[in-house]
Each structure stands twice: as C-alpha cells, then as structure tokens.
Design a protein around this nucleic acid. Structure first.
Lengths: 199, 199
DNA sequence: ACGCGAACTGACCCTATGGTCAGTTACCGA
DNA sequence: TCGGTAACTGACCATAGGGTCAGTTCGCGT
C-alpha cells in the first residue's frame, strides 16, 4: 500500500470539498494566479484527481460560480421589496452581507477579471453579474428620476458606481472579519446618511 | 541585409516608445495577462530588445508606473486647494480627469492587482496609491466630522469607497472615449448632487 | 573609407502550469 | 472471498512565457 489507490471518499463529497477549497483560493487570489496544483494540494489530493472531476480549470471555476452565484443573487433579489430608494439601499446592503456570511469570496469570484474571456466560467460570472446589475439599476432609476436626470449615460454611470460601492464594501469587509454582517450594513447606512446630510 | 541589425532608433527614444506601448497594454489588460512578446510585437521590435532595455518584466512595469504616477499625483495634489468639501470633490474630479487625458490608463496601472507581490513595481504602485489615498482622506474627514462620526473604521471605509467611485468613473470613461475630461467632471458632480438631493 | 560602438534579432534555455493516461488501491455486493 | 467498480496517483506531455546570448547590421566620428 503506497500513496495510490482510493481513499474511500465518495466522488460527490470530494467534489464539494474541492469546490470549497477552490472558492476560497480563487476568491482570494484570483483565477489567473491560482494553480490547479495548489488547489489539489490544499485538498490533500493529486492534480489529476481535480482534472478527473472537473475536466479542466475553466470548468472548475464554473462549478465554483454555480455554487456561489445563485444564493447570492437570490438573497439580493429577496431584498428588493421596499419601494423607497434609501430604504432599499439599506436592505440591499443587509441582504448582500447576509448572503456572503457563508461565502465571503462569492463577490470576488463573480467579479474576477482574470477569468478567460469567452470561457464558460466568464459567461456564468457575467450572467450573475447581469442579474445583480439589473437589480441595482432598478434602484438607481428612482434616484435619477427624483433629480430630473434623464441622460441614459448618467444612468449607466451611476449603476457602475453603485456596484463599485457595494464591491468595495465587501472587499473591505473581508479584511475586517471581526465585523458581523449586520454591523456592516449599519455602517454603510450610516455613511450613506453622512454623505447625504450636507446639500 | 536581413531583419537583424540596428534600425537607427536611439535607445532613449525606443525606451519612450516601449513605455508608451506598455502603459496602454498593461493598463488595458493587466500586468499578468500581458506578455513581453506582445509588447515587443506592438512596438515592432523583438522581445530581446525589450529585455535589453528594461532587464525584466517587473522593471518594465516599474518604468511605466514612474512614467505615469508622478503627473497623476501632481495633478490631483494641485487641486487640493478648496476647503469646502463639496467644491473640493468637484475640483478633484476635474483634476483627475484632466490628468488622465494624456494617460487614460494611468489609473488602471496604479490599481493593477496582478502586479507580483513584493516586487518593485508593486511597491511603486503602492507608493502612488498611498499618496492619492492620503489626499482623499483629507477630503472625507470633513464629511465625517460634519456628520459627527468619529469611528476610525468609518473613516477608513469611506476612504475606500471614495477611491472606488473615482476608479469606476475612470474605467467607465475609458469606454466612452468621446467624452471630454470636463464633461466627465460635470457629469460626476451632477450625479453626486442627485444622490445628495434626497435626505 | 573605415572601424567601432550602439541597436537589434533569431535561436535558444528553463520553468510553471494545464492537461493526459496507464496503472494501483480500497470499498462493496454477491 | 473474490471480482468488479470507483477513487486515486505518479509520471508523463505540450505549451506559453520570461529570460539569455552569440552574432548581425547600421550610423557616425575621424
């Protein structure tokens, strides 16, 4: 008995474990700079095993995205109930941070710019991104209409900015793990109010 | 006479040309996914020539940063004169976009997350980033004090958000090259006002 | 005119990494 | 207990990309 041969772990279990490892690693360091060998090593498995299960690197990334994307989108969607823009912003924050308690790297994954262009992984990421984008758009529309702005470019830019604010908050949160999701949502709301105070 | 031999371009000129090409390419696609061969090809020169001038890839990136960082920092610093927060934001926008007319990729370069950790290029980027950060910090402090917020974490988060807003605007601008720097600054100011309108 | 130094390249090496495959081991049902 | 199947690996291949070097060509000062 050497190091070869089965270890008695069911394929489905191994798959889940590898996805968990890959989500953390790709989320933290990005797709391009994360190697198959490293993921395999962290899971205590050979590189060949990873290829056996996922086929190739892109499919691994896609599996990670499909693991992490739906709950994220679902949580944010569930928060889009309040009609008043300010309140909705706050509820969206709360939902996003709550959704990311399980997978703090989900946001980074969906936003990973190093995913190979045109790959199925990038398409999956873009898909989730589009859904999040559409929800953000619904929120910013109210703000612009209230201010009497109708230029579609204004709309587009504000959407991007909104997403950047959320993204930045999520990344910042990753570096302050001691803060709870709720505390983060409150902090964001407080800051938004502070900026809004002076006219 | 084959393809070898000098082409009569002075070393300093070739260096400038290569930096120009590299700034554009690395700024657009990122350090990690841009190859030496591609930069060389775009400049109509062999890969060996690039190595001859810059030594290695990291030093190339550093040269790009030193080309592009100082004018960016200087322009933004020059705008930090107005004391009123609202006005300063606008002037900072104007200054940043004006500074990037020449090097639209400067911001992306300084923010490139794929620069090798610990490399001289990353240190240079961090240096410029710190300077920009410090200036942004001076601006956000007023806003927080006015709102009676003293938590240093609030301060830190707002700094990050401010930077993200600027970065996003710059990236967005790169995809709308038809807009002038002045138009961009005006648009940002308009949006900021729109968000600020409702209390 | 001529030679020397600067500019420049093709061909090469090395490493990292994605990917493949024949073969090994353990689990499990009959 | 024993054979079949699923899990698993070591050793291998291919390619891309950073980096090196001997050697070629041109411009320029004398």
């Amino acid at each position: 008995m050497g190091t070869t041969g089965t270890k008695g772990v069911a394929r489905a279990d191994r798959r889940r474990q590898l996805i968990a490892v890959a989500v953390a690693e790709i989320g933290r360091r990005g797709y391009a700079t994360t190697s198959m060998a490293e993921i395999a090593h962290r899971a205590g498995v050979s590189k060949a095993m990873v290829h056996n299960i996922f086929g190739n690197k892109v499919e691994l990334a896609r599996a990670c995205l499909e693991e992490v994307g739906p709950p994220l989108v679902a949580s944010v969607a569930a928060a889009q109930t309040s009609t008043e823009a300010g309140r909705r912003a706050q509820e969206t924050f709360t939902a996003i941070f709550a959704a990311l308690v399980e997978h703090r790297h989900a946001w980074a994954l969906v936003h990973d710019a190093t995913l190979p262009q045109g790959s199925s992984a990038e398409q999956a990421a873009t898909g989730y991104l589009d859904q999040l984008h559409a929800m953000g758009t619904a929120g910013t529309r109210d703000v612009l209409e209230a201010a009497g702005l109708e230029d579609p470019l204004d709309h587009d830019l504000l959407d991007h900015i909104w997403e950047a604010v959320v993204a930045t908050s999520v990344y910042w949160w990753q570096e302050h793990e001691e803060l709870s999701a709720d505390a983060m949502a409150q902090r964001l709301t407080r800051l938004l109010a502070a900026v809004t105070v002076r006219g």
